[in-house]
Design a protein around this nucleic acid. Structure first.
Length: 816
RNA sequence: GCCGGGGUGGCGGAACUGGUAGACGCGCCGGAUUCAAAAUCCGGUUUCCGAAAGGAAGUGAGGGUUCGAUUCCCUCCUCCGGCACCA
């Protein structure tokens, strides 16, 4: 009985079966190979957008594919539930952030279910649940005990009108997004995690992570930014304390013609105390937001401090400047300037009329004009006193030795990576478990008092954190001495929650420990999929937390994610689809119109996963059309009656061709999904096979048997991407048991063999003909046959054949 | 500014290890079906010359290596992402 493809009916039926039979709930099965398939969990903004649909569908496809390979697959889902949007919504709609967040979670979970994702919902996590965040509070106190956290002053964006700290995102062109006031940099005390203690380990392990894309590993390597150099001290005239700088180029030391410090440097502040012009300049430097991109792109400005610094080797005095491009957060907040051999120093010297001195010459002996162009390559030292004529390495060592021998400096390794500031002056986050006591200073909250629960019934005004106005939260007794004390009102950066959630999915209900023995079964994550925008911060913090948990004895695993797939953005009008930009395409409408399978198929077909996908409304229709054609192809085939068993030995040439196509497709699609992650080409190959079946038209018993095999194969192979329609068609093809428990189709090697293959013939690299040759023919035979082609003859005739290149199975190139 | 990734028909993309550029799909054009429309089916579709056979050009720009380059190397342009308080 012929039927029309009705997506909603088909999809609801499949989803009901999966739910009723708990198809995706898994325990720990030690008999099977486990496969932990994870997607970066979403922020519960309220609605799924296309970026979500893309990443969730990629991950779901991998999970379902691995299940068909016989693996014991766990795919959990949860919510990165803390963050600023909930606070903004609270201000706007007067709804408590918790209520808003939980309502969003409910809505988004329903949308995910409608899309048919294979999640083990019994493991669901929301990071705003005290049962979750108590364990990161606990880990923080453990890190406190080990000295892995500390408090220091650090720079924030300050809105002088709203009297509040702003996130970088809330600074638009240097102004506060609500007040429009010029943002200032301000220093406040904040908590830091010592990620730099793991810098070397995080860097070195990258070399042994074949499952990660090179681009991500390169970005992390550069982010950590390990550089070997020397710390040098320069005496400051009239000061007891010398000035310390870090340099990777001690070989250029004789080229120092000035020095520069950051605006926040103590020497700059000291000079400002007696010189109003300098004070004004420093004040001006502060009037910018704290984002590095802002600092790096603004005009390079500076001012002489009227302080001299003594060159340690020549004894000459060079001027000390304050400059807006020197970062207090990198190195020592002071730099030695070598304008001859550093691009930025050169430009700064040109602008301010500072001397430029050549101390490095090219190794090939060529002349350079240091006044006309900077020379940054390594070379031989010149104009360098006793150190002339040395190579980079020799000069580096000789000068480093001198400083170490004279106790004026030391070889050291510097990192671009900075310690992780985790304090946020915001309400909707996990409270930092610290109590401040006048006598005992900062005291971690004892384990028995955890969690420090965030009060959820708050009056939310938007003027600073409401926690500060809650005496019942703030006023506590000191856990050490029992005197009156104050609770920390800052909350954790939301990256803290997302740095360990992947581990908690293994044992989300564990009430006795952060992780239990189930984590040993599931960790590490076998396949992690998420946006490329997380390539550095989230992934680096997670690798750091995994090591902290390891050193706490919670796990033996060092690297949390074995294989990483970074999926590209979904762009609309050339920009990232985001709520902020208002260029969001709502998947819901498309699901209502075409069904979940069409949406899933289109997302997978439109672009390879790692590339950005420019959204276009055209094309979704095409995916729907294909599913209808696929449905009808099965329908017509089944309606024609029972199918005889396939006898591969009794096929004619046409039947063999279709069967070869089937098995070639099994090989290609399995490779595309399993190894290459090129789901777009897997879909294309499936379409080709369906097209081949539709065009086939052979209604003989053998022909119909070959078609049955082809349709079964394509149904199985498309099921990871479009599971609902395949579920229905599998039954239609005569199977009593559900597709969800089927294995990936097997390749019959003998079906792949062909008698004749087509060889391309080139003359001088240009395509001139094609010849059909026997599959096993040797190179000489192929070359001879190629030469016989009439069109090839036209180009070879009367010319001398100088060379003939035969690429077996592919082409012949005749060079004349 | 620094770091990473892109740029191929009208559009999304394919070409996996240097070997047929444009698979698959969209769009468009023509045809069939229909009272008509939708849906569906068939054919065509890089550009230029040509009736065709065939030829020439062609993968952001310019140069290089090679019998052969979308693929490797150099220089440049441009777009996207990240830059530590967006998630």
């Amino acid at each position: 009985m012929s039927t029309a493809y009705q997506p909603e009916t088909v999809e609801v039926a499949a989803q009901e079966l999966w739910r009723d039979s708990k198809s995706f709930e898994v325990g720990e099965d030690t008999d099977k190979e486990k496969f932990y398939c994870l997607t970066m969990f979403p922020y519960p903004s309220g609605k799924l957008h296309m970026g979500h649909v893309r990443v969730l569908t990629i991950s779901d496809t991998i999970a379902r594919f691995q299940r068909m390979q016989g693996k014991h697959v766990m795919q959990p889902m949860g919510w990165d539930a803390f963050g600023m949007p909930a606070e903004n919504a609270a201000i706007k709609n007067n709804v408590p952030p918790a209520q808003w967040t939980y309502a969003n979670i409910k809505e988004m979970r329903a949308q995910m279910d409608r899309l048919g994702y294979a999640y083990d919902w019994s493991r669901e996590i929301a990071t705003c649940d005290p049962k979750y965040y108590r364990w990161e509070q606990w880990l923080f106190t453990k890190m406190f005990e080990k000295g892995l956290v500390y408090r220091k002053n650090s720079i924030v964006n300050w809105d002088p009108v709203d009297q509040t700290v702003l996130a970088n995102e809330q600074v638009i062109d240097g102004r506060g997004w609500r007040s429009d006031a010029l943002v200032e940099r301000r220093e406040i005390p904040q908590w830091f995690m010592k990620i730099t203690a793991y810098a070397d380990e995080l860097l070195e392990e990258l070399e042994r992570m074949p499952g990660w894309p090179d681009s991500v590993k390169t970005m992390q390597t550069n982010w950590i930014g390990r550089s070997e150099g020397v710390e040098l001290t320069f005496d400051v005239v009239g000061e007891d304390e010398p000035l310390t700088v870090f340099t990777t180029r001690p070989d250029t030391l004789f080229g120092v013609t000035y020095m520069a410090v950051a605006a926040e440097h103590p020497l700059a502040e000291k000079a400002a105390a007696t010189n109003p012009e300098i004070a004004a300049f420093i004040e001006e430097c502060r009037k910018t937001d704290a984002a590095e991109a802002t600092l790096e792109t603004m005009e390079k400005k500076g001012m002489a401090l009227g302080i001299s610094v003594v060159h340690p080797l020549t004894g000459e005095e060079v001027p000390l400047w304050v400059a807006n491009f020197v970062l207090m957060s990198y190195g020592t907040g002071a730099v030695m300037a070598v304008p001859g051999h550093d691009e930025r120093d050169w430009e700064f010297a040109k602008k301010h009329g500072l001397p430029i001195k050549q101390v490095i010459a090219p190794e090939d002996g060529s002349e350079i004009d240091i006044d006309a162009a900077v020379y940054i390559d390594k070379g031989l030292t010149v104009n360098s006193g006793d150190y002339n004529g040395l190579s980079y390495q020799d000069a580096f060592n000789a000068i480093a030795d001198w400083f170490e021998d004279n106790d004026r400096g030391r070889r050291t390794i510097n990192y671009r990576l900075r310690d992780w500031g985790v304090s946020r002056q915001r309400y909707w986050g996990a409270p930092i478990p610290i109590i401040y006591c006048d006598d005992c200073d900062a005291v971690p909250v004892p384990e028995q008092d955890l969690p420090v629960v965030l009060p959820e019934d708050v009056q939310f005004t938007g003027h600073g954190s409401p926690l500060k106005d809650m005496p019942e939260f703030v006023n506590v007794k000191c856990p050490q001495c029992g005197k009156d004390a104050r609770r920390e009102t800052d909350t954790f950066d939301t990256f803290v929650e997302s740095s360990w959630y992947f581990a908690r999915y293994a044992c989300p209900d564990s009430s006795e420990a952060m992780l239990d023995e189930r984590a040993a079964y599931w960790l590490p994550v076998d396949q992690y999929t998420g946006g490329v925008e997380h390539a550095i911060l989230h992934l680096l913090y997670s690798r750091f937390f995994q090591r902290v948990m390891r050193d706490e004895g919670l796990t033996e695993v060092t690297e949390p994610f074995t294989n990483l797939l970074t999926q590209g953005m979904v762009l609309k009008d050339g920009a990232k689809m985001s709520k902020n930009k208002g260029n969001v395409v709502d998947p819901q409408e498309l699901i209502a119109k075409y069904g979940a399978d069409t949406v899933r198929l289109f997302m997978m077909f439109a672009a390879p996963p790692e590339q950005a996908l420019e959204w276009s409304d055209d094309g979704v229709q095409g995916s729907f059309r294909f599913l209808k054609r696929f449905w009808n192809a099965v329908d017509e085939h089944v309606d024609a009656g029972p199918v005889a068993a396939l006898d591969p030995a009794a096929l004619d040439a046409g039947q063999k061709d279709l069967r070869r196509k089937t098995h070639q497709s099994i090989a290609k699609i399995g490779d595309d999904i399993g190894r290459r992650y090129t789901f777009n080409t897997a879909v294309a190959a499936s379409m080709e096979l369906v097209n081949a079946v539709t065009r086939f038209g052979d209604q003989s018993d053998a022909g119909r048997a070959v078609v049955q095999e082809a349709l079964e194969a394509v149904t199985l192979m498309l099921s990871p991407m479009v599971p609902h329609i395949c579920h229905a068609l599998w039954a239609r093809l005569g199977h009593e048991t559900a597709l969800i428990d089927e294995r990936w189709p097997a390749i019959d090697e003998s079906a792949l063999e062909a008698d004749l293959i087509e060889i391309v013939v080139q003359v001088n690299g240009k395509l001139r003909g094609r010849v059909s040759v026997a599959a096993g023919a040797d190179n000489d035979t192929v070359a001879a046959q190629a030469l016989e082609d009439p069109n090839v003859q036209r180009f070879v005739e009367g010319k001398e054949v100088r060379k003939t290149i035969v690429v077996p199975g592919r082409l012949v190139n005749i060079v004349v």
